[in-house]
Design a protein around this nucleic acid. Structure first.
Lengths: 143, 143
DNA sequence: GCAGATATTGCAAGTGTGTTGCAATATCTG
DNA sequence: CAGATATTGCAACACACTTGCAATATCTGC
């Protein structure tokens, strides 16, 4: 059993409280997500954790991510590269400007889309779920 | 060879002009896209066309869609249901409010997102490509 | 601590959407 | 109409993700 850092105690408490078990795999996956700078895919989590613990299976990563997502502990964004990316929900809510040319991602804070959200409710009675939205386009360098 | 309606002449001219050939498969696929109310997936185009012409292969559908997309004759939107959907680019540009609960899609005209687009250029120097964007959330009925 | 209940894992096979190499065939040009 | 070449159908593949199930690990109550 490899050495394991202790991730966010609140996350562990949330899991335990609902009858979910704290396993080394879950600890390592959580740690990988929290350590990731930016947004990390299931495959990247898998590769990262396997450096310490070769026995990990990719299906455990997917199942853990699904669990964390349903519990609202991680957020999911489709950056349009054919796989879904995750980050800790503990960070501030934000959106993503994804450059279609160079792949660079600019973070955009949640407030920036508030006017859009208000307009959609007023004009269409549509309550947009704008968490972690990806907007595609070209960044300054790639114009 | 089945009976074939004549799709948009401009589209045929665009194809011919670039050395692409007018085949019955392409005619039938184009027709399926133009006749579709709303947004149609590759699989739906395939099934629809096969009613008339059983010999069609799904890879021909994908290759034709790719061609039409590159030529700007159809537009593509990821509605978040695990497959990409297409519609004729001849129609007005618009966006989509997709209800996560009932799947209902509200069309939103392009102008509605102009303020967002302007803000992103001004504040982030990011030129968003907002064509046929999908915004997820809940419609009035599913609140 | 320990035993039993049960949540979780690893494995291997399966899904679903979309892609690709290649030989056969169809379209277009002169 | 013949030749050049674009396109198709086929079958196999790619890739991200899912699932059934037996083996194993975690947690709870004593």
């Amino acid at each position: 059993m490899p050495f394991i850092m202790i991730p966010n105690r609140d996350v562990l408490a949330s899991l335990a409280q609902k009858g979910y078990r704290i396993t080394p795999q879950r600890l390592m996956i959580l740690q990988a997500i929290e350590e990731a700078s930016g947004h990390i895919s299931a495959e990247e989590i898998y590769e990262g954790v396997r450096h310490n613990y070769a026995g990990l299976n990719i299906s455990t990563v997917y199942r853990t991510l699904e669990l964390l997502k349903v519990m609202g502990l991680v957020a999911e964004t489709d950056m349009g590269d054919g796989r879904v990316r995750f980050h800790s929900a503990g960070h501030d809510h934000h959106h993503h400007l994804v450059c279609s040319v160079c792949g660079h991602v600019i973070d955009l804070d949640a407030a920036a889309l508030a006017p859009l959200s208000d307009m959609l409710i007023e004009r269409y009675r549509f309550r947009a779920d704008l968490n972690h939205m990806a907007i595609f386009g070209r960044c300054e360098e790639c114009t």
